[in-house]
């Protein structure tokens, strides 16, 4: 992939459209009519999933957003577990390197990181491939998006998981070691399950951040919900309807996630005293 300026910034296709003269010069338009360029039936038509409407486009965008968010969260969790282990049990060099990673990623805006990693990552892979004598590959936006957001998420989950591992009563880990468990078994049987109740609130927050950070990929031209919305709005000129509809979709994702994650936290904390009693 050759470096090119991001779609959203370079082409000033995003310039706000001029209002058609006929409507601008019509002071008699009622509030609702001017608020929404179409009538109530028109809104249903605009948002319907059938080809006339753009609802299907939005739903495909939502699906892409969710795919990226799920993938990035999984990648982030893997990096986070690894990073937390490195920060806690690694040697001095490993510990410092992870400290640099988490500090830098958390200090630089996600938008800048996404641009930097998106171009640098695809460029690097292609150069390595070229050096090994293979053809250049076009890395799909999905994979690049997951990798980039996962890298960003990893820095945050490193801190969350590190804190959660520190919250485990040390006796449990020492007991497991005394029984002669190997590090892998210890991680699988003791550390991960025991840290889960402490980590879930922070990780839940990270999942919500991931769903919202997918919107930033619109700036590098990846077709997710926000970009789909802007395309639909740009074609139909019904900006308010589509942006409000996308907002509702994002909000639904957040609310459903909140409900499910609350259940998950309850499940992970089963058998433990409630937070109120523990105080």
């Amino acid at each position: 992939m050759t470096p090119h300026p991001p779609a959203g910034l370079s082409t000033h296709a995003c310039r706000r459209p001029q209002v058609p003269a006929d409507r601008a010069s019509n002071p008699g338009a009622t509030l609702i009519e001017s608020f929404l360029p179409a009538s109530a039936a028109g809104i249903v038509e605009l948002l319907s999933p059938a080809p006339v409407g753009w609802g299907g486009t939005l739903l495909v965008g939502l699906l892409h957003s969710l795919e990226i968010a799920v993938g990035a969260t999984i990648v982030g969790l893997l990096i986070g577990t690894w990073g937390a282990y490195g920060k806690l049990y690694g040697g001095p060099v490993v510990r410092d390197l992870f400290a640099v990673y988490t500090t830098v990623v958390r200090a630089v805006p996600e938008l800048v990181l996404i641009l930097l990693l998106y171009y640098a990552g695809t460029d690097l892979i292609n150069q390595v491939l070229a050096a090994m004598g293979y053809q250049r590959v076009d890395i799909s936006g999905l994979v690049a998006g997951i990798a980039v957001l996962g890298f960003v998420q990893g820095a945050y989950s490193t801190e969350v998981i590190r804190g959660a591992i520190l919250a485990i009563p040390q006796g449990q880990i020492e007991a497991a070691r005394a029984f002669g468990m190997s590090p892998g078994l210890l991680l699988r049987r003791i550390t991960l399950p025991a840290m889960l109740p402490f980590a879930i609130p922070g990780l839940a927050n990270l999942w919500l951040i991931a769903t919202k950070d997918t919107a930033l990929l619109a700036v590098v031209g990846f077709f997710e919900l926000t970009l789909a919305t802007r395309q639909a709005a740009g074609v139909t000129k019904a900006y308010l309807i589509f942006f409000l509809a996308a907002g509702v979709l994002y909000l639904c994702v957040t609310l459903v996630s909140n409900f499910l994650l609350g259940r998950a936290e309850k499940w992970a904390r089963r058998g433990m005293p409630s937070i109120k009693d523990a105080r």
Partner: peptide
């Protein structure tokens, strides 16, 4: 808090 800032 439930919608992306870019969308807002």
């Amino acid at each position: 808090r439930g919608t992306p800032l870019l969308l807002q």
